[in-house]
Design a protein around this nucleic acid. Structure first.
Length: 809
RNA sequence: GGGCGGUUAGCUCAGCCGGGAGAGCGCCUGCCUUACAAGCAGGAGGUCGCUGGUUCGAUCCCAGCACCGCCCACCA
């Protein structure tokens, strides 16, 4: 064993060994309770980024811990077909050859996507291996696998039969570039500098005009009304009259509607049901027509002569020029507002009316809200549960159809007779008229429609499989904050609806890892840090430790310092092991004969309890810190230093005890740093099996008394050490090496005086508190007791330095 | 527009129930001690964003303010 621990080679070797020996596998085992986490399926086109690395480490840590605790731990891997994202990638490939998907046709294009995936996709799960992720890789699932497709079809048909999925012609978000509808969650709003145009609409009776304000003058061409607030005094006389829409010179009614905001603009709103969500609602309520002047390509259509094919900018110029020419342009002013964009490609979203499939969500949301409220699903940190519930409470219908080719094709068939048939498999003939000529719906489903089934479709649903019975419901879902609505909520809803139970008990929302400068990690900004690079340089164990150390309830900046700390920990552990193993002992048995040995065993047990507590409550950063200080401060700086002389003498009791202590330490560290601990463990004499499946240390209170015994000695020792005196423990006695501090240094540092000063202040503070009657009356007894104990300790420490002062008064 | 989070040492961040202000890195001092100098021993450094309130006592609870960030959103 070299003095410097080098992870390269070691880590890959253990990753291969563990997997080859089947130690990641979760096989059916009715005798053992299960522990299940399904990895959030990454996009097939994806590569491992820092968020995956952090999330993967968190999940692996839990899985390894539970596996050591003897549970049948299943960490389910797989991929998401990522409909729109994948289609865009392959379309770009085609574009290099000057082709579009339409040149290939649907069938050939989909074949091309599969081909592309075979060659370039599906790399990310392999990258999880470098993280040491103990996923059950044999169970890899894909949302486009045959079995999974069946699950998606079943879900759709199930919802259809329940009347919760339906086809409707209504306002949707259209992305002109992707040429598909997208859901509300896929629309991202950001601020934009725009122009607010004030236009006069003459009254049809010639009695004046009404002025409206708009940011989209081209939509004037599709106006069908002007609306004002019913309580708006300024316009009271106008309601019921008619106004004339500029350019098209159409006579439209002036109506009253509560949704109009009197404070905004002029308080009069032009109504364009075809191109604005609010106007759409108002229009439907007032029975207005719904003309559209903008096409699916984002260009002006042929509805208004002379405008066909114009871009919206061109149309805007023309409309504004018309207004100016006719003296109906009141003013134009700069205006900054929030505008919806396609999250995938960034194009400005075009709200328009289209026939799509929708899922009515309210009925599905209610049980999910209940499950979160009553704690069947708990969020960590809890605030995200409130956010999830808020969203569920105001849920709206979900547009699930996409005008794409890559994805699950909607299982609906249409007959010329007008019938719509929804079924899991293609129907032979029309159920209404018997016609065998049926057309399948051209569209595919939103990617998240299939993702919602992940926790059980991966286990064989809709079949009633042994896996499903053994591993559902799962235990934990660890996820990024931005997919709570898209994914987590929908899994909860789908699980309750189809399985009758929540898919997991705990949802962990991990922190977002920012670049070291606090900006978002992003490829385009060049601020990304590749976790695989960090692993290459610092090792997997160090990276895992660093990520856990960084993780928190809020966003954190990536810190190489935290990774460096992990590397130091691995190296420290390695060297401590060299010391302990060099004594050549064969026995691994706790046979403590001194207080420091009993003490370290007590410490290890206390640390085990702490780590369990931190893991259970998902405080990984705190767990990492606890393990660091256990290893450095307690195990190495105290115990190993104290026991060293007896190891040199090859004292058989000391050697056997040291290996037993090291074994416990390695086990505690394994979930965080699996490779270095397994490597050290493999150097143990006569040791069969692997640490990864070794039992997690049980509670051991045999030496609990020693914790206190040494603490007293240790307190005294700490005081001497602060003064520069070197000490070791012999039995219950504190042995002082260089009995005298080098006088020059003690004076320069003034340590002794400073320490005495500090203790005097502490004693005075504690005495004052204990003399305060209101404190004694108001504080809980254990706090008062705590203060008494502190006072006693401070007095004792002070006495050790200057003699007992209480007798000096 | 609505909601949420943050502000603690030079840097990155902990601080769970109100009672001692902490860690790692960096810096300073002293040590190449037969596991580790990628180490050891010690040290300096803080108005816990600001203002008020509750309390015997506030980094912690409450209110307001400032700044930073995130999420949601149909004021054209």
């Amino acid at each position: 064993m070299e003095p410097l621990y080098k992870p390269e080679g070691v880590e890959e070797r253990w990753q291969r060994t563990w997997e080859d020996e089947g130690l990641y596998a979760a096989d059916l085992d009715p005798g053992r309770p299960s522990y299940v986490i399904a990895v959030p399926p990454p996009n097939v086109t994806g590569a491992l980024h820092m968020g995956h690395a952090l999330n993967g480490t968190i999940q692996d840590c839990l899985i390894r811990w539970k596996r050591m605790q003897g549970l049948n731990a299943l960490w389910q891997p797989g991929y998401d077909h990522a409909g729109i994202a994948t289609q865009v990638v392959v379309e770009k490939e085609l574009a290099k050859d000057g082709l579009t998907r339409h040149d290939l046709g649907r069938e050939a294009f989909v074949a091309r996507v599969w081909e592309w995936l075979e060659t370039y996709g599906k790399v990310i799960i392999g990258q999880y291996r470098r993280l040491g992720a103990s996923l059950d890789y044999r169970r890899e699932r894909f949302t486009m696998d045959e079995g999974y497709v069946r699950a998606v079809m079943r879900f759709f048909v199930h919802l259809y039969r329940r009347g919760l999925v339906y086809r409707d012609n209504r306002m949707i978000n259209w992305c002109p570039r992707c040429a598909t509808a997208i859901s509300d969650l896929e629309v991202h709003h950001h601020e934009l500098d725009d122009t607010l145009t004030y236009a006069r609409y003459p009254l049809a009776d010639g009695s004046g005009h009404v002025t409206i304000a708009t940011v989209r003058p081209p939509t004037i061409l599709a106006d069908v009304a002007v609306a004002v607030h019913p309580q708006d005094e300024r316009y009271r006389g106008l309601v019921g009259k008619e106004a004339v829409v500029p350019v098209v010179e159409r006579r439209v009614p002036i109506i009253a509607d509560e949704r109009v905001e009197p404070e905004f603009g002029t308080g009069a709103l032009k109504i364009t049901p075809g191109h604005d969500p609010v106007d759409f609602e108002i229009g439907r309520e007032h029975g207005l027509p719904e003309p559209m002047v903008i096409g699916l390509d984002g260009l002006m259509n042929g509805e208004v002569p002379g405008y066909a094919g114009l871009t919206q900018e061109e149309a805007e110029r023309r409309v504004v020029a018309w207004l100016e020419e006719h003296g109906q342009l009141e003013k134009r002013e700069p205006y900054r507002h929030s505008v919806g964009h396609c999250e995938r490609c960034g194009s400005r979203i075009e709200p328009l009316i289209s026939e799509q499939w929708f899922v009515e969500m309210k009925e599905l949301a209610a049980p999910a809200i209940e499950a979160i409220h009553d704690g069947r699903v708990r969020f960590t940190p809890p605030v995200h549960g409130d956010v999830a519930v808020n969203w569920l409470e105001s849920i709206r219908p979900w547009n699930v159809s996409r005008q794409l080719w890559w994805g699950h094709r909607i299982p609906a068939w249409y007959c010329d007779c007008g019938a719509t048939l929804v079924s899991e498999t293609p129907p032979d003939r029309c159920a209404e008229c018997g016609d065998p000529e049926l057309r399948q719906d051209e569209d595919v489903l939103d990617t998240w429609f299939s993702s919602a089934l992940w926790p059980f479709a991966t286990l064989g649903w809709p079949g009633d499989t042994p896996d499903l019975r053994a591993f559902y419901p799962g235990d934990v879902n660890s996820t990024a904050r931005e997919i709570i609505f898209l994914w987590v909520n929908r899994m909860i809803m789908a699980g309750l609806e189809l399985m009758g139970d929540v898919p997991f008990r705990d949802v962990i929302i991990h922190s977002t890892v920012l670049a070291p400068d606090g900006r978002r990690m992003s490829k385009s900004l060049g601020t990304g840090i590749d976790p695989l690079d960090v692993i290459d340089v610092h090792g997997t164990d160090a990276t895992r430790y660093g990520l856990l150390k960084m993780s928190s309830t809020q966003d954190v900046r990536f810190s190489y310092g935290a990774v460096e700390e992990g590397r130091k920990l691995a190296n420290k552990l390695w060297n401590a092991s060299r010391l302990l193993l060099s004594a050549g002992g064969k026995e691994v048995e706790a046979r403590p004969t001194s207080v420091e040995e009993r003490w370290v065993l007590a410490r290890l047990d206390a640390a085990r309890a702490e780590v369990e507590e931190h893991f259970s409550s998902f405080r990984f950063s705190t767990a990492a810190s606890a393990l660091y200080h256990l290893t450095f401060d307690d195990f190495c700086d105290w115990y190993a230093e104290a026991i060293k002389p007896r190891l040199y003498e090859k004292d058989p009791d000391a050697v056997a005890t040291s290996l037993a202590a090291l074994e416990r330490l390695l086990a505690l560290l394994h979930p965080v740093m699996p490779h270095v601990t397994e490597e050290i463990w493999s150097h143990f004499p006569e040791r069969a099996g692997r640490l990864i499946v070794a039992p997690w240390p049980g509670a051991d209170s045999r030496f609990a008394d020693a914790a206190g015994a040494l603490e007293r000695v240790q307190d005294a020792a700490a005081i001497f050490r602060r003064s520069g005196v070197r000490v070791a423990l012999e039995g219950e006695e504190l042995r002082i090496f260089d009995a005298v501090v080098r006088p020059d240094r003690a004076q320069v540092n003034g340590n002794g005086e400073a320490e005495i000063e500090r203790l005097r202040k502490e004693v005075a503070r504690a005495e004052a508190m204990l003399a305060n009657e209101r404190f004694l009356a108001g504080a809980p007894p254990e706090v008062v007791e705590g203060e008494r104990a502190k006072l006693a300790r401070y007095r004792r420490e002070l006495a050790a330095l200057v003699g007992d002062e209480s007798h000096q008064k």
